[in-house]
Computed example of a mutant assay.
Amino acid sequence: MPMARHIVCLSYDFDVQSGFISRGLTSPTPLSRGEFGVVGSKRILSLLAAHSIPSTWFVPGFTIETYPEACESVVKGGHEIGHHSWAHIAPASQTLEEEEADMVRASEAIVRLTGTRAVGYRSPAWDLSDNTLNLLLKYGFEYDSSMMGGDYVPYPVRQGDQVKLGEPVRFGPPTSLIEMPISWHLDDHPHFEYWRLPTTVNPGLQSARVVMDSWLDEFRYFKKTTDFGILTYTMHPYVLGRGNRMLAFEGFVESLIKEGAEFMTMQEALKAGRGLIY
């Protein structure tokens, strides 16, 4: 029986304006909301450095080429850089050729930034296409963090599931790609960001302390029910980086430390779990 370990991965989607542009929101005010991510990134990096916490940043190629100094600061802080497309376009809306070209372009930007290729991938808007898995395997990725088939236990991604209305799912075989599962309720965006689109409104703007209490309860349940596992939180610098949220987040991090959380990059956590939970 392995020693009890409760690994926490703090992950950041460093989208800046890319998510707004991909949705056609290119007037000055929505673009400025994304631009605030550079301000937020400095606050987050400072907090992580103060507690010597490693983390993973999923960075679109757009961000790397638009804000190279901000991205270099992430690398200098010792944090992992993960793949998050180039233009933050949902893969399910792309052709195979478009998705592959975007993936390759983003990979090249990451190599220029870090000197190495990314081993982890997170799809924009957590929306994989029918082609994404094959592309990730083709280009040698080791893990994905876009799906929700688990919470504390990463698992091998299957290939070739057959889904047809009126019939049971026919599951395909597992692959070498490991899923590091995520969840919308452990993502800051739906809790905090006010969105008004032609067909939908996300009210957001919840109390930061209420959300952080909920996130802390998730860790406590994780600790109570598992001997070994990995829990991933997802955040966006332009969302989390606002003052009151940073204050609540700092308290959350300090509580995780007191509760015995072991912080790792997602690449480190992937290695820690091999042979134990997958």
Rank of each mutant, 00 (worst) to 15 (best):
L133R: 13
S46R: 10
H51N: 11
L31H: 02
T116Y: 08
G78H: 04
V75L: 14
A109G: 10
Y67H: 13
T114L: 15
Q94E: 00
I89S: 01
E80C: 05
V59A: 10
K76V: 05
E108N: 15
G82M: 04
T56W: 08
K42D: 13
G37H: 03
A109C: 11
K42C: 07
A109V: 11
L136F: 01
E108G: 07
H84D: 05
G61W: 08
E98N: 01
S55N: 14
W57Q: 06
A106C: 13
K42N: 07
V111F: 13
T26D: 14
S93W: 02
L137F: 10
R43V: 04
V111W: 06
Y121I: 06
A90E: 03
L133I: 04
P60M: 12
T66G: 01
D130E: 13
W86V: 11
N134L: 04
P54L: 15
W86G: 01
R43M: 01
F20A: 09
D102W: 05
N134D: 08
T95E: 00
G24V: 04
W126G: 05
G40W: 06
A109R: 14
V59D: 03
R43Q: 05
K138C: 02
L137I: 15
E98R: 01
I81H: 09
V104E: 00
G82Y: 07
P68Q: 14
V119F: 15
L113T: 15
S129E: 02
G77M: 11
S55F: 13
I44V: 02
S46K: 13
Y67N: 10
V119Y: 14
L96R: 10
L47W: 12
V38C: 12
S93V: 00
W57M: 04
C71N: 07
H88R: 02
N131Y: 05
V104G: 02
V39F: 07
H83T: 06
D102M: 01
V74T: 02
R43C: 00
R117Q: 12
P91M: 04
T114M: 14
H79S: 06
T132A: 03
P60I: 15
R43N: 05
R112D: 11
S32T: 09
L25I: 00
L25W: 13
E72V: 12
G115D: 07
D127C: 06
S22P: 09
V38D: 08
E80H: 07
E69G: 03
S107M: 08
I89D: 02
A90W: 08
A118E: 15
A70R: 04
I89R: 05
N134S: 04
A101S: 14
F36Y: 11
E98S: 00
L31F: 06
K76L: 10
S32W: 09
I64T: 01
S85Y: 09
E65A: 06
E99K: 00
P124I: 09
P124L: 08
T132E: 03
T116W: 04
S18E: 11
A87G: 00
H83W: 08
A109W: 12
T29M: 09
